[in-house]
Structure formats: structure tokens, C-alpha cells
């Protein structure tokens, strides 16, 4: 991957922090603390409009109980900058997979540039401080409303054995079933079926995985993204708390991994080797969040070694699917 000089990213970070301050002075600050298991992240929005656009999927994590803040994320709109916003110091050729831009020797400051929407995330890993600039709140795309601030949260919440991963999770007091698989594999269908039949919801697409000792799936977002018109590409974003009150679980211990596959017909469950489960789960996580050079792979490997893994053929009957998830939980308890 092409890498910028460290100085370029460092000075851009400092200039962007001043830009945030100017925007915040103009718009006022909306400060919200979010809690994800034992971590607290302070969000400092320059302007209420941006808070409204990005907080929806995270509202359930809001926590005003106080306590030590583990990371801060400062957010503003480029259009709120009185003197115009700073141009990024990198070229398109500098932007790697996942929008990642790095300095030569790294590793204090890095950037994630989503060139489609123009959103820029800057991370000072030493300070656990993140800057997040969007062009304007009206241009936040549907996927960012469904699962906002993934690169920012990756750095704010991640660490050794803690990773933001591509997976869903459902379950109850017995524990959780982690739903692993690529886009379109059926994770959302299984999560919705489980939700409709009384199981709790942790995530349909992205969650925070604690992989040290007993693995735990921690909820980030309260949303599911439903593909209403496949040809159009866009999805409808639905808050699960509006579907069933009390269905959202803050976290669940991972008791099993299920790898769904859309098949139609009858739901079918079979045991899967840990290696097969890892092959279905790891690439989609590593490639979607390439921010740690694949360090998540070892943690995912630890999870599939520890808990039983299953292949779940996703049929058309939601009641059958929910029963299959129940069977996974029952077999995992044996």
C-alpha cells in the first residue's frame, strides 16, 4: 500500500483538530457518552444535525452514568467550517483497501477516507482520539446510518483480543450464537427470524468481539438492514427495538458459531469443522476492516477452536430457522 510521510498525516491531524474546534465554536457541541460493555466512548458532535444523522443506530448505547472515558470521537461537517474545509494531503493512489491511508513508519496517526461519501476519519492511536469529518449530514449514506462510524469505533474500542468483526449474534440467557458469513449469506434473515420468535438480538452485521478467555459478542448497533429492492442496492434500516421491545441484548457470551447460507426450502443444520467456519468468517472480516493488518484472524481462530460450529442452510420458514438456532444453543450446552 502506498504510504504518506508520517509528518503529512500528523500535521493534517493537528490542522483538522483546529478545524473541528472552529466548527464546534460555530455550531455548538452535542456531547454524548456511549458505553460498550466495559468501554466508554465520548462523542463530541459539532451541531445537532450530525448527531441526529449518526446516533440513531447507537442511541441504545447512550449512557450518562459517568466514569472514565476510554476514547473520544470529535465529529463535524465540512460545510460548517467558516473558512472552508481542509483538503486532504493524499492522492487517490494513496488510499488503500478499506479507505486506509498510512504514514511511512506509522503508527501514531492514520486516516480512513471513504472517497464515495467524502467522509474522513483520522485516528491518533496513542491518544485514543478520533476525528471524523463528513461533507454534510444530509449526505450520510444508508450504510453509514445502519452501522455508523465503523473505522472510528474500531480504533476506539479495539485492542488485543478485541476486534470489530463482521458477524451477527442472537441468543438468550443460555448465551449467544454468532452468525458468521459474507455479505448476502443470510445473517440478517436468521437474526430477524430469531428476533421474531423471542430470542434476543445483539447484531445483524457488525459487533465487537472480545476473544480473550470466554468469547463475548458485544452489541454496537440496534439496527438491521433489510434489502427491500435488491436491484436498487440500497437497504431499509430498521431499529430492532421498534420491532420488539426488550429484544436488544448489550452482550452475550458466544456459545456457538453458525455459518448461514441462503438455500431456500427447508432449514438444515449440520456440524462444521472449525477450519470451515474460520474460512467463512475470517476473510470477510479481515478485508472489510483492514486496519490492523489481519490481526483479528488469530482471535477469530481462537473463537472457532473454543465453541462448536455449525452450517445453517437458510430456508424460507422463519419458525424453522428460529428452531435451528434453538438447536444450536441446545447442542452447544451439551
Amino acid at each position: 500500500m502506498p504510504r504518506l510521510a508520517e509528518a503529512a498525516l500528523g500535521s493534517f491531524y493537528a490542522a483538522a483538530a483546529r478545524e473541528y474546534d472552529a466548527a464546534a465554536k460555530r455550531t455548538g457541541v452535542v456531547e454524548v457518552d456511549l458505553r460498550f460493555a466495559d468501554r466508554r466512548v465520548r462523542m463530541r458532535f459539532a451541531g445537532a444535525g450530525l448527531a441526529d444523522a449518526l446516533l440513531g443506530a447507537l442511541a441504545s448505547r447512550s449512557d450518562d452514568g459517568g466514569g472514565e472515558v476510554d476514547a473520544t470521537i470529535a465529529l463535524w461537517e465540512a460545510q460548517a467550517c467558516p473558512a472552508g474545509s481542509l483538503a486532504c494531503p493524499w492522492q487517490v493512489a494513496d488510499v488503500g483497501p478499506g479507505g486506509l491511508v498510512r504514514g511511512f513508519d506509522f503508527h501514531r496517526v492514520l486516516a480512513v477516507h471513504e472517497t464515495y461519501s467524502g467522509t474522513v476519519t483520522l485516528v491518533d492511536s496513542a491518544e485514543r482520539a478520533v476525528l471524523h469529518r463528513v461533507p454534510h449530514c444530509g449526505a450520510v449514506p444508508w450504510w453509514e446510518r445502519a452501522a455508523p462510524l465503523r473505522p472510528a469505533l474500531y480504533w476506539a474500542l479495539g485492542g488485543e483480543g478485541r476486534h470489530l468483526v463482521h458477524a451477527g449474534a442472537v441468543g438468550d440467557d443460555r448465551g449467544g450464537v454468532l452468525l458468521a458469513g459474507a455479505r448476502g449469506s443470510g445473517k440478517t434473515t436468521v437474526a430477524l427470524a430469531a428476533l421474531a420468535h423471542g430470542l434476543g438480538f445483539v447484531a445483524d452485521d457488525y459487533l465487537l468481539l472480545h476473544a480473550i478467555d470466554e468469547p463475548e459478542a458485544v452489541s454496537l448497533y440496534s439496527t438491521v438492514s433489510i434489502c427491500a429492492a435488491p436491484a436498487a442496492g440500497a437497504k431499509i434500516v430498521v431499529d430492532v427495538t421498534s420491532l420488539r421491545h426488550g429484544s436488544l441484548r448489550e452482550s452475550l457470551p458466544v456459545r456457538a458459531v453458525a455459518v448461514p447460507r441462503i438455500r431456500g426450502g427447508r432449514a438444515r443444520l449440520r456440524r462444521l469443522s472449525p477450519a470451515e467456519a474460520l474460512r467463512a468468517w475470517a476473510p470477510t472480516t479481515v478485508f472489510q476492516m483492514p486496519f490492523d493488518d489481519g490481526a483479528a484472524l488469530a482471535s477469530l481462530g481462537a473463537v472457532v477452536r473454543r465453541v462448536p460450529c455449525f452450517a445453517l442452510d437458510v430456508g424460507d420458514d422463519w419458525a424453522e430457522l428460529a428452531r435451528a438456532v434453538e438447536q444450536v444453543l441446545e447442542q452447544a450446552a451439551v
Binding site: S273, P274, L297
Partner: peptide
């Protein structure tokens, strides 16, 4: 990056996808 489980090695090339 790579991980071997139960005699199967899974290899991921971060640059090529």
C-alpha cells in the same frame, strides 16, 4: 496472515483480496 486449525491452513493475502 495465516492460521492453521485441525490440519487446514487458511491463508489471507491482504493486498490481493
Amino acid at each position: 496472515v495465516h492460521e492453521t486449525i485441525d490440519g487446514e491452513a487458511i491463508l489471507i493475502h491482504l493486498r490481493t483480496g
